[in-house]
C-alpha cells in the first residue's frame, strides 16, 4: 500500500495521545473509554489517568501510529465500524485525511481554515 501524506517523515502518535489534551478528553469521556482499560485493580478513574502516561500505552500508540501511517491499519479500523472515508484515508496512510474524516463522522468541529 502506498501512503501519500506523512510518508516522508515518521510521525509518532505517542506524544499526541499521551498529551494533557488527550488525558483531559479521556477524563470527560470516561464512560465510553473505561470498558477498554487494562484490568489493574485500579478504579476506572485512576486507571484512565494513569494508563495514558505509561510506557506500555506509549508503545501501543506508537505502533498504532506507525501502522496507520504505512496504510496497514485500514482493514482493522473497518472492523471497528469506522466509516468508509475514514478507512479509505487510513488505507492511504493519510494521517490528516484520517483525522478530518473521523472528526466529520463524530460530529466534531473542524478547524476554521478547513470550513
Amino acid at each position: 500500500p502506498g501512503g501519500s501524506k506523512g510518508q516522508e517523515v515518521s510521525v509518532s502518535l505517542g506524544d499526541a495521545l499521551s498529551s494533557d489534551t488527550a488525558a483531559e478528553a479521556a477524563k470527560t469521556n470516561a464512560e465510553s473509554l473505561s470498558p477498554h482499560l487494562p484490568e489493574t485493580g485500579n478504579t476506572p478513574e485512576k486507571e484512565l489517568s494513569e494508563t495514558v502516561k505509561t510506557p506500555q500505552f506509549r508503545q501501543a500508540t506508537d505502533n498504532f501510529g506507525h501502522a496507520l501511517q504505512t496504510g496497514q491499519l485500514g482493514p482493522v479500523l473497518a472492523q471497528f465500524g469506522l466509516n468508509e472515508n475514514t478507512v479509505a484515508a487510513a488505507n492511504q496512510g493519510d494521517l490528516l485525511g484520517f483525522a478530518r474524516n473521523l472528526t466529520l463522522a463524530e460530529g466534531g468541529e473542524l478547524p476554521k481554515e478547513e470550513e
Binding site: 498529551s19 473509554l33 473521523l102 473542524l110
Partner: peptide
C-alpha cells in the same frame, strides 16, 4: 490497547481536538 486507542481517537474527534493534535 487497540480498542482503547480507537475510542480515544473518536472522543478527540468529537471534541474537535484530533486534527490539531
Amino acid at each position: 490497547y487497540l480498542p482503547f486507542v480507537v475510542e480515544l481517537l473518536k472522543v478527540l474527534a468529537k471534541e474537535g481536538k484530533l486534527i490539531p493534535l
